[in-house]
Design a protein around this nucleic acid. Structure first.
Lengths: 192, 192
DNA sequence: GTCTATACGTGGATAGAC
DNA sequence: GTCTATCCACGTATAGAC
């Protein structure tokens, strides 16, 4: 499934092999899952060999880590911004807007990969474990300490909606843009 | 992680080995993921050998299938009920109530396993592919064909909340009961 | 920077004894 | 119904040539 573009025709010029590996890996990890993706497949997508992949990354884990590192960088920006704001509804709504923008940029693809590979990520070192980071930093950052369980749930669903609607919820129908807009709308009314 | 009870002390009496395998497998699959769980581990949890497991199941897949079959049975009851109801808000709310009850029974554990093993399930035959079944049957069953994308999203989030709040969202804090109650509350206000 | 060749471990699965 | 022993395929990773 998910027809790869058989050995990347014109795109292959020396110098960006590393980035191409990341790109192919993200695609495979998301479609088939991290565990079911072999380095041989990734190599074949680019028309190179396993050994060539090992020149750019020391291990399979390192590829996933590099991907997560990108997502973490972007989420950390948002977390540190939110940390120096008061925990008001306005701030939470602004956070949602920024999350939505990031999701429609490149973060949405990364978050979909995270969602789909929850278990693979769980058995990785903490500093690359997105699940841990964004659950306990992003969630908590914007939620007042005395918030009710229901309010925490509302916030969590709102974040989930904007992060996943455009890329991870194609079953809803409509275009990615329509889903993103709908997510913003629903997140706003949901936000405590 | 997730300390298994080292070789099941008194619980082991002949005749329910199959059920014990299912139980151990569900626990492992949920904690570590399907791919990272070996038959050796499952066997060791029960103090038997790999070969003994193969007496009860023809393959590793079959264990997962048997687990999913259970979930499917329970979801199918709800789907067929909903199919012979009009697509009104009252019906959707009643569906949520029933889903919540099922989730707090045993369905919640199964759905958590589904959530965590999305990719493993994706590469399995359709008739056991929960993701496919409940997404396209359960979602669509209760949603009028002309519903907006936003309304579909609201319904999806509501279902997700009640199915996962008690078992799959421990980070929210509170007891499983509190989370289940909160999920019902949020799902109700979310429901279109 | 990319290749071929290969070592090594692991896990699913089967055969056949008890 | 459970065991021991074994087979085989595959995937990660490394060594060393080009």
């Amino acid at each position: 499934m998910a027809g790869r573009t058989t050995a990347e025709p014109a795109t292959r010029r020396r110098g960006n092999t590393r980035a191409e590996i990341q790109h192919a890996a993200l695609s495979r990890f998301t479609d088939q899952g991290y565990d079911k993706t072999s380095l041989r497949e990734i190599a074949e997508d680019l028309g190179i060999t396993k050994a060539a992949v090992y020149y750019h990354f020391h291990s399979k884990d390192e590829i996933l880590e590099s991907l997560m590192g990108e997502a973490i960088t972007r989420l950390d920006e948002l977390v540190s911004w939110v940390h120096q704001q008061p925990p008001t509804r306005e701030v939470r709504l602004e956070l949602i807007t920024r999350l939505s923008a990031a999701a429609n940029d490149g973060l949405g693809d990364l978050m979909r990969c995270v969602q789909v590979n929850e278990t693979a990520l769980a058995s990785m070192p903490d500093h690359v474990n997105l699940a841990h980071r964004y659950k306990h930093e992003l969630w908590d950052a914007a939620t007042p300490p005395d918030a009710s369980v229901a309010d925490r749930l509302r916030f969590r669903l709102a974040v989930m909606a904007v992060l996943l609607a455009s890329k991870g919820m194609a079953e809803l129908g409509g275009t990615a843009q329509e889903r993103a807009a709908a997510a913003l709308e629903v997140a706003t009314e949901l936000m405590p």
